[in-house]
Amino acid sequence: MTATVSGHGSTGGGAGDNLLTDRPELYEAQFPDPQRLAARWAEDVLCRHAAGPRLLDAGCGTGRDAAWLHHHGRHGRGRRVTGFDLSPAMLAHARAHHPGPEYLAADLRGFDLGRCVFDAVLCLDSALLYCHSNDELAGFLASCRRHLAPGGLLIAEMRNGAYFLGRTDLLDAPRTRSLTWQGVTRTSVTTLWVDRAAQLLRRRRVWTADDGSPPVEQHSAWRLLFPQELRQVLRTAGFRVLELHDGPGPRTDPPWRPGGEPGAAAPSPDGPADGDRLHLVARAA
């Protein structure tokens, strides 16, 4: 028997369990970042654009990045970080294992944090793409504007919809990945396909384990946004795009490296946007 669950993951809505977001330790084992490269990349962007200390991590997940930025950002002085997520398990894990920031429960697609004002909003790991419809995307951007100080930044890292124009390398065959966690070897088989009418990249992931537990099938999806479309959406929402390019970034190959390290390279603000990851910096007008 196969149990089937669905949902947007840790940032959107959707009922049902999720093997990774309901088990944050397993999530961190599946997607390790021991060097905190994602947080360090974000800090580099924040410093290059002279962002103030108040930071909102939208879709903070396990809290790894939020905590690093809270304690080590701003040249070691730390930032005042608030993170929010929709997964109770992720929030509990963040508070217990990555303390420092304030962690709140909120929906990415429309959030109201009262009178909180931030100098920047950070949205990593394609979290922005859990806004599947135009209304959901508009709700996210309006919420960001409401909580950003004048001239505040929106920084996002995500899949690039343009990558799938004429390319099928990520779609041609399922991808299999295994890891051993708490003495159990779990194997995931992931299949991606493009839902053109909905402009979504859909994902089906089936988990099996060697402990005799039944397979678990999960479904999720990301909005496929194209660079020029994203520029227009941001302009309409009251943002001015400062950077929009395909890297280097924390998820590119090769990945971004801090200045001074071998392989370090500064992105061009108007560089190519052809790779499989898209990196955005926009300022609230």
Rank of each mutant, 00 (worst) to 15 (best):
Q228R: 13
C116Y: 01
G152F: 01
D33W: 05
P53C: 08
R74A: 15
S10W: 10
S188W: 13
F31E: 02
T191F: 04
E102T: 13
W222Y: 13
A106R: 10
G61F: 01
A162Q: 12
S178D: 12
P32E: 11
D33F: 05
A209K: 03
W207P: 05
R109M: 10
A94V: 01
S178F: 05
G12M: 12
A42R: 04
W256E: 04
I155A: 05
L124R: 03
L55E: 03
C47H: 10
P254V: 09
A197G: 11
V281C: 04
D17G: 02
A120H: 09
H72W: 11
Y103T: 02
G110N: 06
D210F: 09
C123N: 15
P214V: 12
Q182C: 10
R175W: 13
R205W: 03
L46D: 10
H147I: 12
L55A: 07
H71I: 01
E157D: 15
V216E: 13
H279C: 12
R146D: 03
T11H: 13
F31P: 00
T21E: 07
L230I: 06
A162H: 13
V194C: 04
L179P: 04
H219Y: 15
H245L: 03
G212C: 06
D85M: 06
W222K: 12
T236A: 13
L179S: 10
R54W: 15
D17K: 08
R186E: 13
F140E: 11
F226D: 08
G7I: 12
V241Q: 02
W207Y: 14
H147D: 03
D253P: 00
W181V: 07
H279M: 09
R177M: 11
